[in-house]
Design a protein around this nucleic acid. Structure first.
Lengths: 234, 234
DNA sequence: TCGCCACCTTGACTTCGCTCAATCGGATTC
DNA sequence: GAATCCGATTGAGCGAAGTCAAGGTGGCGA
């Protein structure tokens, strides 16, 4: 395994808490998998066979509702792991995973996970912290869906792309295509378009896959504003 | 600890997978707590100090968004545990917990959890399965919010209250007040009212805190129908 | 038994996001 | 350079759900 790949995997929440030798033991058994955009990693309902770590590219986790609608539940990139929670049992995946771009993934068989948990029980704690991170993300997503308008969710999405130390005027690159952004934010592409248009009033200009935020702080204010009282500021 | 309380706690996902002696060891150190409706169990941002198991009553987990809106993230009752994921670190609770009715809770200190994990590492797997159950619930909730109309979510909510073996005509009791039901389903009480009104067309009659479902199967069909094509059936 | 209060329902209006459909723009191909 | 194609945008119309405000309705205490 290339050292650059190893380094990325090592920093994932799943492995970060482990001592060097344990991480090494796991990654030695793991396989690197190169996939194309659109490739399915696994499907909901499938028996869980592996945990994955994203090395490069973007993977979307989604569910197909009984009525056929697709609900995006998460989008992961470099250094993120997924499928942990289900790995230690032989349960079914509750979601499907698909590559939103060409990807490099690491695949760790559940057998390896189980063996590892048996050998070094502390490893279960790593599984737990990774799972907790997912839990936290989902809670945040529910909060967004329930408490914010579409445009506000888009604003928040943009703000998440901004480096922590930035301020004032910033330019960010949209990480994946707009259909997926829309899905991730629980709206249709048309609505995303209109949301971008609305954000122009708040100093956001979008051109292709780049967005310029004129003033970070005021966009933050907008994202956290109460939708019900927004009309007050003529 | 009363044997009846012990029995309920023992069946929770958190303890169900453990051998008798381990469960006993944990519950011996735990405390039973009686709370009144409206009591706060913990607040989001608080440092996690304990895991809870509901013995009796209903507890709501919620988040307050920056704009002040409340998003209900889960509602738990007899035999459910919450707060596990965060217990093994000294992280902050990502949500707040409040009693929606008078409750009997069991409180297990994180110290006891940590000691337990150290003594019997398999216990971490119990934490994991309980956490995974929460994860799964949240994913289902996101799917509902994104893929169903309000009335359909209400229908699904009612269907979850129905015993598995039922069919045809059923009567169910609404477990908590309508404000909370509305919150749980991501809508305002007024919208819940209107949703109930709409469900009358599908054989659902609501009176006080009782609902009569005229025909289970057709309500299921309605809940899973594609909102976009619902108009087709005059 | 009366009146009050909390909870729920209903009505009128507004806003938001979806659908359907037309169009645009940039990129690729011939 | 023209033809074409796909993703993105824009417009019109509609329905779902939110807001604000006005009535119920039932339970409980005086």
């Amino acid at each position: 395994m290339l050292s650059s790949i190893y380094q990325v995997a090592r920093k994932s929440l799943l492995l970060a808490g482990l001592p060097e030798d344990a991480a090494k033991a796991i990654l030695e058994r793991a396989r690197v998998r190169e996939t194309e955009r659109g490739a399915t990693v696994f499907l909901q309902g499938e028996r869980a066979a592996a945990v994955y770590i994203v090395i490069e590219g973007w993977v979307k986790l989604y569910r197909i509702a009984p009525n056929g609608a697709e609900a995006v539940v998460g989008v992961f990139t470099k250094g993120h792991s997924f499928g942990e929670a289900v790995a230690f049992t032989h349960d079914a995946y509750p979601v499907s995973a698909e590559c939103a771009t060409d990807c490099t993934l690491i695949r760790i068989e559940t057998d390896a996970i189980l063996r590892m948990v048996r050998d070094k029980p502390e490893f279960a704690l790593s599984l737990l912290s990774a799972t907790f991170a997912h839990l936290h993300r989902l809670v945040a997503q529910i909060e967004q869906l329930k408490a914010q308008t579409g445009a506000q969710r888009v604003a928040e999405f943009l703000l998440e792309l901004v480096p922590d130390d930035a301020s004032g005027k910033v330019e960010v690159k949209l990480p994946y295509d707009k259909v997926l952004i829309a899905g991730r934010l629980g709206m249709k592409p048309e609505s995303l378009s209109r949301a971008f248009a609305k954000l122009r009033e708040h100093g956001v200009k979008v051109k292709q896959n780049h967005a310029v935020i004129e003033h970070l702080e005021s966009l933050r204010d907008y994202a956290e504003e109460d939708p019900a009282t927004a009309w007050q500021k003529g």
